[in-house]
Design a protein around this nucleic acid. Sequence first.
RNA 1: GCCGGGAUGGCGGAACUGGUAGACGCACGGGACUUAAAAUCCCGAGAACUUAGGUUCGUGCGGGUUCGACUCCCGCUCCCGGUACCA
Length: 820
Amino acid sequence: MTERYEAQQVEEKWQQIWADLDCDSASDDPADQRPSYYCLVMFPYPSGNLHMGHVRNYCLGDAVARYKRMQGFNVLHPIGWDAFGLPAENAAIKHKRPPAEWTYANIDQMRGQLKRLGLSYDWSREIATCHPDYYRWEQWMFTQLMDKGLAYQKEAEVNWCDPCHTVLANEQVENGACWRCETPVVKKNLKQWFIRITDYAEELLADLDTLSGWPEKVIGMQRNWIGKSSGAEVSFGIEGCDETLDIFTTRPDTLMGVTYMAVAAGHPLAKKAAENNPELAAFLDECSKISTKEADVETMEKKGMDTGFDAIHPVSGEKVPIWVANFVLMGYGTGAVMSVPAHDQRDFEFARKYGLNIKQVIRPADGDWDMDAAAFTETGILVNSSEFDGLSSSEAKTAITAYLAANGKGGERVQYRLRDWLVSRQRYWGAPIPAIHCDDCGAVAVPEDELPVELPTHLQPTGGASPLSECAAFKHADCPQCGKPAVRELDTFDTFMESSWYMNRYTSPRNQNAMVDAAAIAKWTPVDQYIGGVEHAVLHLLYARFYHKLMRDTGLFTSEQGGDEPFKNLLTQGMVLKDGSKMSKSKGNTVDPNAIIERFGADTARLFTLFAAPPEKELEWNDAAVEGAHRFLKRVWRLLEKLDGKTAEDNDAAAVKALRLDIHATIKKVTHAFEHGFAFNVAIAALMELSNSLQAFAPKGETGQAAFREGLQALAAMLAPFVPHFSCEIGGRLGMDKIAVLSDWPQVDETALVQDEITLVVQIQGKKRGEITLPKDAGQDDALAAAQSDVSIAKWLENMHIVKVILVPGRLLNIVVRPQ
RNA sequence: GCCGGGAUGGCGGAACUGGUAGACGCACGGGACUUAAAAUCCCGAGAACUUAGGUUCGUGCGGGUUCGACUCCCGCUCCCGGUACCA
């Protein structure tokens, strides 16, 4: 009689053994012949407690990493801490202790939790982004970008979050609200640091096509975010003024239908017009107060006011009025649009409201259009367009754009929705931006030999402005260029800066000489499998792609070494839900991973999270099903008891053969699941089936024993990526040569898959009417004969004439009949 | 509006390139063991009709292709995610 399965004991024992054997380190030894494989999970923010989303993420990653090791790969599976960020400051305010203390204490706590789960990380590569050894390279990189003009300061209308007391990048504004605290953001004009991600817009877009291992969904989201649109730039003259009013349009074919212009409230022309027009000034003021939040933008009233200026049409020379409109965005294109009410619904409604002209210049290719009802927004044939009359829209686009270019009034233009990445934050707990502001020299990069610019970690935030501004020792510095007293940049980096390159740093995490080591990059990157939440689809995953290209172009590695993209394959896991909604403290529906581990052990927690749903789908938490997962482990454990059922007689040869068929069919299935889409729920279901087969098999004598043992060993090995402690224990008790997590992945014995007899489903008119069993080499005639002699099938053939017979080998026989 | 994805038992979910729909698990019902319970094991189970054997219906809805459709095609409905006054 075997003793009970005691998860806590088993898990403690094996974690110790793994640590002693150093099972989980990636080898940088050049003599190591194994192919390398890089499996990466999104590193956590050290909030203090692991939640179920982390557990799911890391169990998925661990299953992949362990499987690949068993397949003979040299696996890099690192972990670290995305350790800068606002929660640390908030906690610091609350507890009146510096954020560093809080952060490092949390890291210790969470490291323990990860270890308790038995995740096979290479802990020797652990990094924390708040450590100067890490962020110094980020600072170094930034100075390189400053030199190249890819990092710059500018005053711009930016998103400000009041509770967070900082600006945000566009990507961090969701539905007009802060991505962290969900407070509506306000627009402010501030001087901030940006990185020219727009310079890479085209490459970021084009390379999406190379990401065959990414979900379509994420690629689509990034494509939308980059938002490329092609059209023309058009320069309108301004009456009585030398300047021009430039606009972008995707419909140059409608140019002759322009009846007015519309500019944003923030446009210089609007401001100029408001100077001696108090009414207009009041309107501009009103517009600036509208936050982007305005929940139902759709219902927002479209308002405008005449500036009194007129624009001059670049082709006809006609004068058209210039209006200010609240729906024109300063941040997109040029902050001005040409309005063609006949062919744009929004312009149409605006023109109706303010009594502006509507001039039709496109007619449908066939039939007419009632201009009174709505704008005609499709393409068609040009009318009322003088020399362009009769052209199709697409011909006209080319012709009109060419005309503009020839006359110096514009030309082709590509416009992106993507805007430069705003990377400065008015926060304390982040990496200092390595710049010094000098009255004479402007913003000067901190020289390389003075890096890192260390963040003073002893300061105590109070909630308002960053305590860095109060810290004289930090604030004052000499200008690196002229040596005069100057002031350090007091803003810190957006924390997405740190997470944009950590995957590359893991390949040489202790490198003191460079940001990354090109040889290590070549060995490990790009990441073979990246796993994390879909919420980063256009945040982290876009920035990281961009940063990888920046690193490449800074000469840290070449395309051949590090690739042009950081992540070859991406798996976006679904959320963990409880009672149909996302777990959150405020809803009180959280499940504490520790409680589950304490009650059932880490292996049960792991097994459940992998079994309950396919990885990319949402996972509904179910306490009863957790117990079910635990029950399965106990069932497998009890199978060990059946091992020593020795008797004189042996098992029936057919039963042994059937068991071996099950064993090897399962190996095939589970291997397939790992190689195609990580359908672990299906893989585990197959392992449960094998366990059921073993359960039903009573081993007797030598061959029966051998087959049973073979099955148990295969089961132990295949369970190892999911429940490693349990597998090792079972494997040990079975007397496996190597411990389960270090053993080779089981091989399919093709001969075991060959069946002497096959069962065919018999259909009449495509409906199942019975089954027949035949020798495996039986042909269609044999099958038909067998079907006809089967009573329950034959009755469907009475008085029928066989029209056609279809045999799908090994599967079914379909007989098509017609009444005689 | 646009772009993705989805809809299969009471529930989570299976079904390879069209070939036995509902694997596996949860919950449920019945039985065994037990003084009893827990634990464990065995059996049952899509729906309707049927004495049995069985028959019919069934993968969101309506059509189509096919010997055969959860799977392919056309047209819808609803749900989820993303995004949006984008010029």
